[in-house]
């Protein structure tokens, strides 16, 4: 029969104080979903909209964006003064702030913010020759924004080269070129990688 006319009654109960919903006979999927529900409920309670419903995605409350931008600028300032660990701290704070944005706010905005913060943190890690962290951050940045993010693509490629993972770097940069088109720096990096691979094969 049509699923609209029936549903499975679940054994639910509510905690009088915290208003948290829990199951009397828990199963894993149900537990996970109820955890999601309760956290969403808490987020909804902090809203100040008239009916306690999330506002439409646009326009966005500018407060958080301003905070994120401020943290990023502080990080950039520290970076320019070559105080890289401090810069990393600022970027990390900014990331935390950006990722804690309420879920119903536009994901495009979060992507933009997170992409630039990860890319900058990757850069700071690279300045400290922490290639592993740099590679991971650059990959995260690319995940958040694939196109128009040539710097992050380049940074991961560079980090992989520094760690001696040449084949991986070559594949990565080729993918980058597919995404970004013939970006000068990426082309140069690919040429560099291919030269290194050739040299290594010669040696072997």
């Amino acid at each position: 029969m049509s699923s609209l006319t029936h549903f499975d009654l679940l054994p639910l109960q509510i905690d009088p104080q915290s208003k948290a919903i829990s199951a009397t006979t828990p199963s894993r999927a149900l537990e996970a979903e109820l955890a999601n529900l309760n956290s969403l409920h808490r987020a909804l309670l902090s809203l100040e909209t008239p009916h306690g419903i999330p506002p439409p995605p646009v326009p966005v409350n500018p407060k958080r964006s301003a905070n994120v931008a401020k943290l990023r600028d502080s990080g950039n300032g520290e970076f320019r003064k070559s105080r890289f660990p401090e810069a990393i701290n600022f970027y990390t704070l900014g990331l935390k702030m950006a990722l804690q944005r309420p879920q119903w706010e536009p994901n495009q905005l979060i992507r933009e913010e997170v992409a630039s913060l990860y890319a900058n943190r990757a850069q700071a890690h690279m300045a400290l020759t922490q290639w592993a962290e740099g590679a991971v951050d650059a990959e995260a940045s690319v995940e958040a924004r694939r196109v128009g993010n040539a710097k992050a693509w380049w940074r991961r490629g560079r980090c992989l080269v520094e760690m001696g993972r040449l084949e991986e770097a070559r594949d990565w940069v080729r993918r980058a070129l597919g995404m970004e088109g013939e970006e000068g720096e990426l082309v140069a990096l690919l040429r560099d990688i291919e030269a290194r691979i050739a040299k290594k094969e010669e040696k072997a």
Partner: peptide, 12 residues
């Protein structure tokens, strides 16, 4: 609209 953003944000 809200649900769409929530879904996209969760996957991201």
């Amino acid at each position: 609209q809200s649900a769409n953003e929530i879904a996209a944000n969760t996957t991201l």
